[in-house]
Design a protein around this nucleic acid. Sequence first.
RNA 1: GGCUCAAUAGCUCAGUUGGAUAGAGCACCGGUUUUCUAAACCGUAGGUCCCAGGUUCGAGUCCUGGUUGGGCUACCA
Length: 594
Amino acid sequence: MIADILKHQIAQALHNLYMVGVSDDQLDIEQTKPDFEGDFTFVVFPYLKQSKKGPEQTAQEIGAYLLEQVEEVASYNVIKGFLNIVVAQNYWVNFLTKNYNTTNFGFATHATNQKILVEYSSPNTNKPLHLGHIRNNLLGYAVSQILKANAHQVHTCNLVNDRGIHICKSMLAWMQYGNGETPASSGLKGDHLVGKYYVLFDKHYKAEQQELMNNGLTHEQAEKQAPSILAAQELLRKWEANDEETVNIWKMMNGWVYEGFHVSYRTLGISFDKFYYESNTYLLGKEIVEEGIQKGVFYKKDDGSVWIDLTEEGLDHKLVLRADGTSVYITQDMGTADLKYTDFGCKQSIYVVGNEQDYHFKVLQLILKKLGRPYADGIYHLSYGMVELPEGKMKSREGTVVDADDLMAAMIEQAEETTKELGKTDGLSQEELIELYNMVGLGALKYFILKVDPKKKMLFNPKESIDFQGNTGPFIQYTHARIKSVLRNAKAADLIMQFDESEITLSKVEKELLVINYKYPEVLAEAGKTFSPGVLCNYVYELAKVYSHFYHEHSVLKETNVNQQALRLQLCTLTADIIRSSFQLLGIQVPERM
RNA sequence: GGCUCAAUAGCUCAGUUGGAUAGAGCACCGGUUUUCUAAACCGUAGGUCCCAGGUUCGAGUCCUGGUUGGGCUACCA
């Protein structure tokens, strides 16, 4: 990387000229702002005390040194304390020629020995997926793909929350009001059918609460005493006692949900290496509690409940086992963490879970650290903000959610409509068209979600459909399709891609496009280091924008200088491949035509 | 109350490790196609970067205090 060379040489210059001792990575050079001439900028202000000279003179001296010592440096200019360095054209051009034909340019090539487990999705089985789950799924998928591209050994898993009071609520309502309704008899997708009964339960539960409150109970009392909730709790007890009828209904209804989830996951284009089920893991962790007591990490109260004191860490006392000896959430999470480590041996693991669990994961990691688990330091909670509607938070119980299946279908439909309006797809078969509508519709949705910084909450307004213009997935897909069109035409005309470097001159836009291509490996590494699909989104948007600008400024096919034309073809080839590969990492496909 | 995350253009969002005059898209207004795909391109307009201090050559970015909003603070998961 040229930036590293420059840093090294600047460090040398500082040392030789002013006896300043700094290491290469303490130095900071940045990309020159577009209004100025140059490729990289070094800010000299921090070194004036040691140079004992003014900013301009210091910058001039370093610039002269670089020009002398570094063959890639073509020239430099100084504005105040800013040293702008111009890198020689042939450096950029050589880079292009060397890399334009590399598939998956930018992916790390040396396998690391880092094994990483990404846990994501983790749905409850009492209701269908909604927009919030889509964010989780897309983030988890994209992050795992990005880490793979950084040559890490990545595994993925999905811990399905298939047991508990919420499932019992759906089961109870189905038993009471369902009349044996099934997905087949109702024509409803399995997860939607079960979700319907979850909402129905809540409706009756609310009505009962109201009645109790009318009879003088407080809201809190009513919540606890309503017949529905008591029945649901009783059902949970039966489930835990392995009551045959209860377990059979539970299996049947969960089966419906899994069929539904399977369809949604397939549409979303995501998959997992392994599924864990809480019904298998919820009893884990009790031995760890025992171990913790012996190690003095936990302490037991007189009533038998077990706690950990985290006041030194600025938190409070946290329960890890109930007085009756049963697990709480964190107990099973400790057990599951051990289980996952046994299964995969990953010292680094990422939990893609909403930010409402920030506190929980902080506690979990602290506990595992105190227990001396080798994987504890490698736990990273990829915490993301809620997707909100203009009216506020989505609530499954109250039915105020944007359903994942509905939304995906709507996006695909909108893609079809827009595509037909534009009428540029003559010659595509029906299958190809359907594939295209899927690509574009889901591309719009996925990009819309992934471009936002995960830790921020995001707003989705169902009344304003997701755009297909501007900073969107379809714009970038469209850019790809256009490049491919150029390349098809070039191939048909038997144009060559080799050129004589001395015969070409890079225009401003060509240079800009080349440099942004050049940056892809760094961006990919950055996205991997920070687990940020958004970094990749912003980059590829910028790339598509610069390409579009280039496309309007220069013709490829009509260029008469064959050398210049070949250079542009190389630029097109590399740009298209970067769009394809970065979108692939985001879980978005790109069309050849649209 | 405590902890925690956020606040940037009318709206949705970028803004790298502190660096030059704060950036996109949408919406609005105007322009560009006999020329490789107009889902594009170019331009106009739009800002108290929540507020007040501090740190320094320099702060949207770091620190302190405050305001507003979200989340957590369950022997629920």
